[in-house]
Design a protein around this nucleic acid. Sequence first.
DNA 1: CCGACCAATGGAACCGGTTCCATTTGCATC
DNA 2: GATGCAAATGGAACCGGTTCCATTGGTCGG
Lengths: 342, 342
Amino acid sequence: MEKPQLPRVTIKDVALKAGVSKTTVSRYLGGNYKEIAPKTRKRIEDTIASLNYRPNIMARGLKRNTSNLIGMVVADISNPYTTAIMRGAEDICNQNGYNLLVCNTDNDPEKENDYISMLQAHRIDGLIINTTGRNNEALKDLAHDDIPVVLVDRKVPSLEYDTIGVENHRAVTDAMHHLIEQNFDRIAFFTEPLAGVSTRKERAAAFEQVLRANGHPSCQDIYEVDLSSEGSLMDKLLFFLEESKGQTKAIFAVNGVVLLQLVIALQQLNLSIPKDLALLGFDNPEWALAVGSGITTIEQPTYEIGTAAMESILQKIKGNKTFSQYTSFSARLIIRGSTTNN
Amino acid sequence: MEKPQLPRVTIKDVALKAGVSKTTVSRYLGGNYKEIAPKTRKRIEDTIASLNYRPNIMARGLKRNTSNLIGMVVADISNPYTTAIMRGAEDICNQNGYNLLVCNTDNDPEKENDYISMLQAHRIDGLIINTTGRNNEALKDLAHDDIPVVLVDRKVPSLEYDTIGVENHRAVTDAMHHLIEQNFDRIAFFTEPLAGVSTRKERAAAFEQVLRANGHPSCQDIYEVDLSSEGSLMDKLLFFLEESKGQTKAIFAVNGVVLLQLVIALQQLNLSIPKDLALLGFDNPEWALAVGSGITTIEQPTYEIGTAAMESILQKIKGNKTFSQYTSFSARLIIRGSTTNN
DNA sequence: CCGACCAATGGAACCGGTTCCATTTGCATC
DNA sequence: GATGCAAATGGAACCGGTTCCATTGGTCGG
């Protein structure tokens, strides 16, 4: 029942047919043309074409101790934020002859550890990771093997890896000033659980700080919802609506995923945006344009974050130690109907 | 400037420290425990743990002629349809010790060919591909190397690869009957260019067929729009609106991407759904719930398509020749406000 | 015409595993 | 105690590339 392996064409076949040694063919493959006579080079070229030969990257990697593989571990592949970053990373990756090994952890630390181990077994040349932020044993291990690592979006204070993200504090501050200008009586912050996720914590902290600085009554209105549990968001939402009955109000969503769930919940409650409730959120998913008169969002330069992460990896592979600890791009507040025409 | 390679721990190191031969360690790694004395096994186990040894998959693959890598080539990674399939594929993939090598072609046939060549160089053990449908030279080549291939969503008639998708004809027919029941004077079909993409052609054909069978005046209302060109969709939309002035009308969107662009365009024109125009589309993106009173959609079992594709690959790797040419899942019409409460 | 030098090429070891085959060990049987 | 056989283990070749070092052949200056 074994698959009958047809023998693939190897460097030896090419050498034999071209009448040269493996060494010379290898030199050709490596692009060391200056060491090869032009007519020999032509002969090898023709032979490779006629045999449709394709060098085995594993064999090369074994000797060179590289794999041409970059690991990409993401917490949620169905989040548009994630795919936008992947696009950026992938483009740079392939322009440099690497391939992306993608793993989706579903925010599960155990899965994350398993994946990193697998990637290590593949001898990845670098890793871009959007970590769950919890239980980072395997991640720590990579430093020991001297594998370049770049964290994306979420920092891990105990690890000395470069991190790329946005200026969360500043972005939240800008957005909050916009909300405060509109004189809402109450402003709530809806987020997924803060535990371990630096981005969420930073945003929540900035939210609170701005409100305190303005002596606003809403400093306590931070709600952590568990999206995997049916009804969790709706319960918190109803609670907030009850608390703020008769008052003008707005909700700040920590990211695009929460934002969408809020829009759906409000629709179920037959509440209108922004008349009954204003809404604003991080990330700028395409559908934000399509809901009502548009949802106000905070746009991150996701594609650029992806390219920057990969470029940082490439630098490290080349041996250029970069010292930047945290690279933050600026985010952009896009004001739409969900926070204005009330 | 070279990176100082610190020597990684190899099977030899383990053998040495455990006082056995490489062969025995290899047997341990392969799980052939019945050939190993219990105390030897324990010793190897401990040694591996203490050295934090991780076998090199490339070295193994070189000898075994496998890579534990499955290629996944997608036309558009930012399409939620794509990521849903990736989730399914990835889950099965990893349960079986494989990893996914993801490539995004942006619907560019040239990129597709380049990627397939790269994947071939990595000696992928299988390939799942959502092909551009054009210029499939490299794809054809894979058959020659006996690499398992499964097409997803889009068929290629000239290639004898298994394909997994949905019952497009039936799904469109169901949806059209729903629209016809509502007695729209005109129904348009908006699609991305049909060229080479079987799915789009099948859906357009079914659309036309149903209308003809019902003697409906709209058989010609098929619009191909180029989303990469600014204004193309808006132009076609305005044309259709002009053509159908004073009539009741609906638009059928070929997929979720076109659907979203239509919603945005309608919002820009200040037209209301479904009062001015009813709307329905393939795919069931999450935001469809959030727009207006919900958008009527045709839901595909995307996750299942992904798992089925990967399971088919695994079967082929095991050498079980499967004879199914086209596996089609059934899609589900979800009726919401965008085609009803007018 | 000879030695020096360079350009072009080849031989063989090596990367880290797997696997075929041979060898050693342990133990029961006669 | 010798014999036989199975269980346990080891040696060495091999997978398909790369790379160090040696070799060959030709050109050039003296």
